[in-house]
Amino acid sequence: MTVTTQPDAPRHVVATSGEADTVLRRLAREGWQVRSGFALPGASWEVGSSTQQLVLHGRIADDDLESVRLAVLAAAHGAGVVAVVDAGSAAGRALVDDLTRLGPVNRDTAVTDGADVIANLIPEQRALLDRLASGDTIAAAAAAEFLSLRTANRRIAEARQLFGVRTTREAVLAYLRQRQRQPE
């Protein structure tokens, strides 16, 4: 079995069905075929090809690790995934962790209404941002955190997306501002 990851395949983890509907409508306008559930339609179907872009969506219960497995498998085959899940639950954390290994995960609720983005960062992202704030380069920060440069760059890109900024410098500044506002 060949597993291919399509870097452009959308991966969204959202908190409500309304947010999922918004994302799904946008993806449908962009030409993605939307299908409910996370099971792949068949082993021979190329879900990541440019002619048959597929987005699977659904709700994942707090303890539904089987749906997490199916969603991650679909994403690994090139399908887009839009999951409604509590990001703080065991299933939510497992889903975000596993999808993050495949590429960036859009957590659309992370920056709405002035939410605290730092709470949504994984420990690797916090450690990298701390090192960048102290003047390290991404390469030096990656080495100090025992990460490959590629992984460090992915984690920083995900942090930029969470903060809603375009540059690493802006992400570091936003991180420092939010860190100063947090109680000790």
Rank of each mutant, 00 (worst) to 15 (best):
V55I: 05
T168K: 09
I118Q: 01
E19N: 06
L121M: 08
Q178N: 01
Q33S: 14
A9F: 03
N120T: 11
D64V: 05
R181F: 04
L65A: 09
M1L: 12
V105P: 11
H12I: 06
R25V: 09
G37K: 10
T5H: 06
S36H: 03
S134F: 13
D62H: 06
T22N: 07
E30N: 09
A39Y: 01
E19K: 06
A71T: 04
G114K: 08
S134E: 15
G48C: 10
A15T: 08
D63G: 11
G78I: 00
R59M: 03
Q53S: 09
P41I: 10
R131A: 13
G164P: 05
G92C: 02
A127N: 04
G88I: 03
A115D: 12
A115N: 13
L40A: 14
Y175A: 11
A20N: 07
L121W: 00
D62M: 01
I122C: 11
L121S: 01
P104L: 15
V111D: 13
S49E: 10
N153F: 00
L95M: 04
V68P: 09
I138G: 02
V13L: 12
R26C: 05
V72L: 06
L54T: 03
Q161L: 15
V47R: 11
L173S: 11
V55K: 07
G80T: 00
Q180E: 14
S44F: 07
A28F: 08
Q6N: 15
R25W: 04
A139R: 12
P41A: 13
A87R: 15
R160M: 14
G42D: 15
A90T: 05
L54Y: 06
A94P: 03
R160C: 15
N106F: 11
H12L: 14
S89N: 08
I118D: 03
A144W: 04
L147I: 02
S148P: 00
D63R: 14
T4E: 11
G18Q: 09
R154C: 02
A139L: 07
V85T: 04
R177M: 04
A142E: 01
T2K: 14
T16P: 01
E124A: 15
G18L: 06
A141L: 01
A71H: 06
E30V: 08
A144E: 10
D21Q: 14
A76V: 02
A20T: 06
V47A: 13
R25N: 12
V96I: 15
V68S: 11
G88E: 13
V3G: 02
G37E: 07
A159G: 11
R35M: 11
V85E: 01
E158D: 15
L149P: 00
I138S: 05
H12M: 11
L147D: 04
S36G: 10
V3M: 13
L173T: 12
P7A: 10
G164M: 07
T168C: 05
M1W: 11
L129F: 01
G103F: 01
A75L: 09
R177V: 13
T112A: 12
R166Q: 14
D116W: 12
S50K: 12
V82S: 06
W32T: 00
A87V: 14
Q125S: 10
T168N: 02
V81P: 00
V47W: 07
T167E: 05
A43S: 14
T137K: 07
